[in-house]
Design a protein around this nucleic acid. Structure first.
Length: 103
DNA sequence: AGCATGACTGCTT
DNA sequence: TAAGCAGCCATGC
């Protein structure tokens, strides 16, 4: 029996599904919102149940997509209008839940 | 029971 | 900016 409940997993999926086009969120943000004890659990949910979810809208805090799918994600994100520079997503412009205070 | 793995993050060099 | 290191939690062997 996993330490996390089905409710938590469901919440994670809901949060990911709620991400609007042209916007992205990090694993850590989703984990925090869903109440997961660690951002690694977000990857776990995505990897196991992410079949019907817009997984491409979930990226690492580095602004770089996950390794096994990074090529795919960059293409999908770019198609949605997400600003990408040098194979990297511009989080300060498309990240949700955080307001870029500006440089 | 113990060790290795992974779609991670933050801090330090 | 990039690279290295430790912490993190569930899963698989």
């Amino acid at each position: 029996m996993a330490a996390i409940t089905e409710e938590q997993v469901e919440l994670v999926r809901a949060l990911i599904a709620a991400i609007p086009p042209g916007r992205v969120r990090t694993y850590g943000d989703i984990a925090d919102e869903a109440g997961l004890p660690s951002p690694r659990l977000t990857s776990w949910v995505l990897r196991t149940d992410g079949g019907d979810l817009p997984w491409h809208r979930v990226i690492t805090a580095s602004g770089r997509p996950a390794a096994p799918v990074r090529r795919r994600q960059l293409e999908l994100l770019a198609a949605e209008g997400v600003p990408i520079v040098d194979d990297r997503v511009v989080l300060r412009r498309c990240r949700i839940g955080v307001d870029g205070d500006g440089p």
